[in-house]
Each structure stands twice: as C-alpha cells, then as structure tokens.
Amino acid sequence: MNLVESSTGTDVVAPTLGDVIEARGLTKRYDGRAVVSDLSFRVRPGIVTGFLGANGSGKSTTLRMLVGLVRPNAGSATIGGVGYRDLPRPASQVGILLDPNAVQRFRTGIDHLTWMCRVSGTDPAVIPAKLEAVGLEGAGRQRIGEYSLGMCQRLALAGTMLADPPIVILDEPINGLDAEGIRWMRRLLRSMADEGRTVLVSSHLMDEMEKTADRVIIINQGRLVEDVTIPELTAWTAGDCVVVRSDDDTTLAGELRAVGGRVKTVRGALDVRDVTTERIGQVALACRIALVELRPVRTTLEEAFLSITDEATPRK
C-alpha cells in the first residue's frame, strides 16, 4: 500500500489503475426523448478530465448514471471495473459533488458533515481539517441557510473529500465561487490529480476548463463528440493559423498561396493557414519582404468546442 500526503493534509492510499471510471453505451431517455445516447468513455487517474457540454447536453444525467442516482435505459458504468452500488465502501472510494444545494438548511455545516461521516464510516474528527481545507473553518457552526452559494459549494466539496477518496466526480464545482474561489478550486483539482486521483469535472465554462483540465470529454445533445487532450483538440481545430503583417501583404499573400497556404485578409493582416511560421519567414526572406508581425494564433478551447459541436449538431 502506498501512502501519500493528500491535498487535504491527510494520508491517502495512492490510486491504482483500478480507479478508472468507465461508461459503456450509456443511454437515458425521458418520455421517449434521449437525453444521453450510447455514450462511452474512460476517465483515467492522475489527470483532470473535463466533461464538457452546453447546458442541457446531458452532463449531469451522465454523472448521475455513473453513481447510480439515475438508472440508464441501456449501457453500464463501472468504477475500477465494478458498478458503483457494488463497491464495498462507495463513500470512501468515490467523492461526489453533484448539487451544492442538496442540503437541509436548518443544519450547521458541522452537523451536515457529521452525518456524512457516519454514513461513510469516517471519523468525524476529520471535520475541522476538511472545513479548513475548503476555507470554511469559521463557518462550521453556522446554519447552512446562512451560507452563500459559494459557501455551499465549498461545504459540498468538504463532504466529497471527507474520506479522501481516490476518485472524485464533481458537477460544475466552480458555480457560485468568486474569482479567488475559482483559482483555489483550480489549484485543488490540480493537486488532487497530481496525487494520482481520478478527477472528473463537468463544466460548461470553457475558459475555466482550458485552465484546469488535461483531457476533455465533449458531449453534445447527449452524444460523445470528442475525447481528447486539450492540446490535441485545439491543434485539430486551429488549422495552424498564423497572423502575418508585412510591408507588402499583397505580394506575400500571393507567394504564400503559391506554396500551398490558405490566405485571407482579416482586419488589415493576413490570416495564413496550412503554412508553418518558419516557412512563412523563409518565403518572406526569399521575396525580400519585411515582416512587421508573425504571430501563431492559438485556438481557445471555447472556439474549438464551438467548432466541433457545430459540426456535430445535425442541421435542421
């Protein structure tokens, strides 16, 4: 057994390859309408996996199927090869944050975590450390009804991490957090992945996922669109775009087209695709054209997401 220091200050068992989340052909229909269709993917330990999709794309339903809250019409989900309900100690193996508002507001934060400790077989003595880890050390004895959404989110996260599980599944965990809270969440997710945990995080906020996730599973209308790393995704959709400005754009454009480039003029600069930055420099040098700007443009995750989901959406 390999004990490591966790992000929340206690020893955890280092995760193994058994900590893989796997969905196979998951399908869920409500009133005959498919919310999730034949969805398959694997989530591996040691990285932050983003689960991306627009609102209503089936992210939450999928996560709920993974942990047995929603019964799939077809397909199955396993965690380490075992169905969630068949895990011997599910609460200590998988930390789940689905809805920070799924609380009873008359309880204090400590009372809420206490019953969760009892159910998961965790010593309630860990509660002060967990509250401190999520920045709620001064609010534990406050009623949850007095909490802001961000505080509820932090409390739910504390509940998720009570037993230091090797797998965490978080649905939109940054909702309600302020800028500092978002940065804190980003660091926390990163540290959990660095500890070797399996981290699956759903979000519709592309900018945030770009900063947080190593890999993304993208769904659209309940169907898998892509399951790739972020660099792969942005490279695919970027089309090697380079912005070029020179003292003779017209000539340079012609020369670049001659070497196979796709060139168009956008806001007074050349938008060049299918030619590398290095090759553009060589062409300009050969033509004795002075370059004023030569800037590769990185496609953002949001642009990549919109690009591929637009392609994946059936036209009406």
Binding site: V67, Y84, A91, A102
Partner: peptide, 17 residues
C-alpha cells in the same frame, strides 16, 4: 423533507444500496 430538499441525492450517493 429529505426528498423535498434533494438531500436524498447525497444519501443515495453515500449509500447506493
């Protein structure tokens, strides 16, 4: 009350059986 406040989701996640 647990159903109304959706706390039942947390309960089921912790006790899937």
């Amino acid at each position: 009350e647990e159903t109304r406040t959706r706390l039942v989701e947390v309960s089921v996640a912790l006790t899937p059986r």
